[in-house]
Design a protein around this nucleic acid. Structure first.
Ligand SMILES: [Mn+2]
Ligand SMILES: [Mn+2]
Ligand SMILES: [Mn+2]
Ligand SMILES: [Mn+2]
Lengths: 217, 217
DNA sequence: TTATTTTTTTAGAGTAATCTAAACTTTTTA
DNA sequence: TAAAAAGTTTAGATTACTCTAAAAAAATAA
């Protein structure tokens, strides 16, 4: 069984590797986990011995199939808990991540099975991120940033950045997962967009913001 | 903030001290926590420095007011989670303790507030044990063991022993919290009782069992 | 009240995770 | 392609928690 710390490293490596595609460097992990590169080197060796990642000195790590399975299970738990917190307990979508960071480490397959059922087997969390099933499978939707949907009428499906600050901002202006967004105009000056939400309210959003809202046509 | 380990020691000391009444010896703690007396001595010194217990070398520890507050908060979380697992997720009352042992350490006052509300501010957990409110207050019910209710008609209110084995046994014979129990006869031979459950089923239960069912008249 | 047994503490060491500082390797620059 | 810079690893410590074995204190028995 993995320790709390090992689980956090593994999950972080999975995310940084773009779901296991690229290899990940020591400094990136240190930055993401808020620790020192020397500590990362130590932990990375431990995970390599356990066959969760492959490690080539000075060239970073790649996650193994086994590591991916473990990482996806942690992510599954994280996202199910976030869904629970919003759907059942009435949390805002910006308040759930910190708590889910703790809850994701609870060890009880039965609990997760029952929680999944209680939530009605959701396929995405409050941020629009897919929830892997118990075999680690999930649908990869082809979503594009709102920034690339000029002139189109689209539906908000997920956020790329899930910082509380960004999520609070979205709530404030009225953007939510499932909202219909129409990009009315793009400013040449700074790339900001004028959008219409649900064929009602019109607002201006920054280029930065428009790159962090993922939509489908 | 207390560590996972410190929280477990404190909660154990609270329980062993009969809610803070008696002082608790090193060996008892070691036994309860499944560790060695030498380790307990170390931890006990740490908790004393933090003013959560008072420690007199060779004579055991007493929990302080501050320690009691901390312990009651952990117990509150434990029991709220147990209630959630049974009421909302459909766990059996014998399956919840292990999971609650993990969940009780999640740090988020907001989560507990919202969970409490979601559950309808329950006053007792699935085993009939009182749930302290956010100020650590709870009602102490005067309950007696079924063993002392010979000839009377009483209501099952709590279990004294909450081992899965005992709880499974109770479920099997049809005893549950809230059930009406009538003690029909007591065997002089071994102290076992013949009882009637909800004015229907009659069963024999051992003296041991009858001492671990708490009832009110 | 002295000796024996039981309980508790201390001493010294081990594991997991972390850090700083120094050494080493790779990458970039000139 | 040699020097400088950036990134990574190693060495050696530190903290939290745990253990075994030995020493010390308290409780019990003779
Ligand atoms: Mn999250
Ligand atoms: Mn999320
Ligand atoms: Mn319990
Ligand atoms: Mn309970």
């Amino acid at each position: 069984m993995l320790s709390f710390t090992e689980e956090n490293y593994l999950k972080t490596i999975y995310h940084l590797s773009d779901s296991g595609l690229k290899s990940v460097l020591t400094n990136e992990i240190a930055e993401a986990i808020q620790t020192k590169p020397a500590s990362v080197t130590d932990m990375v060796k431990k995970l390599a011995i356990k066959n969760l990642i492959s490690y080539e000195k000075y060239y970073g790590v790649k996650i193994t199939r086994q590591g991916k399975t473990e990482a996806l299970n942690i992510i599954r738990k994280h996202r199910l808990w976030e869904t629970f917190l919003v759907e059942k307990l009435g949390f805002n979508w910006g308040e759930v991540h910190e708590v889910a960071e703790q809850l994701e480490h609870i060890q009880s397959p039965l609990l997760i099975e029952k929680l999944d059922e209680f939530l009605g087997f959701p396929s995405a969390d409050p941020h629009g991120h897919p929830i892997p099933d118990k075999n680690g499978k999930f649908k990869v939707a082809r979503q594009i940033p709102l920034a690339e949907a000029i002139g189109k009428k689209v539906v908000a499906r997920a956020v790329k950045n899930s910082s509380p600050a960004f999520l609070d901002y979205l709530s404030k202006i009225g953007v939510y997962i499932g909202a219909t967004l129409q990009v009315i105009d793009k400013m040449d000056f700074d790339g900001s967009l004028e959008i219409q939400i649900d064929a009602k309210k019109k607002v201006y959003i920054s280029k930065e913001a428009s790159e962090n809202i993922l939509v489908t046509e």
